[in-house]
């Protein structure tokens, strides 16, 4: 199921979009991710990820209103779709189920 595949970075971005439902846009995602991961990310990486996921149908977008900020350019807000949420759930379920198979080993 190629269409439903989700890369690691895409997953992070998708999580962010889901976390800031309908209020997530490029710079917001960037800043939050940078804060969480503790490293610098280029904005173009976020845009590429968003674009791909939009093509796959994981997120949908809408334009905000015109303001004087940002050189007069509108913000593009993203929201997670039902499909996106399902993929995220699947991913989470998969990871959890495998994680639970780990035997109880003590790492001392």
């Amino acid at each position: 199921m190629i269409e439903h595949s989700l890369g690691e970075f895409e997953e992070l971005v998708l999580l962010m979009v889901a976390a800031h439902h309908d209020e997530a846009y490029g710079v917001l995602i960037l800043e939050n991710l940078e804060e969480k991961l503790g490293k610098k990310i280029n904005i173009s990486a976020i845009h590429v990820a968003l674009k791909r996921m939009e093509n796959k149908g994981f997120v949908k977008s809408r334009f905000g209103g015109i303001t004087n900020e940002r050189g007069g350019r509108r913000k593009k807000f993203y929201a997670i779709t039902a499909l996106g949420k399902r993929v995220l759930d699947n991913q989470y379920a998969l990871r959890t189920s495998i994680y639970q198979q780990i035997p109880k080993i003590s790492f001392s």
């Binding site: 710079v27 960037l30 904005i43 845009h47 350019r73 913000k75």
Partner: peptide, 8 residues
């Protein structure tokens, strides 16, 4: 629109 805005 999006790219230029975010970059700015």
């Amino acid at each position: 629109e999006e790219i230029e805005g975010d970059l700015t």
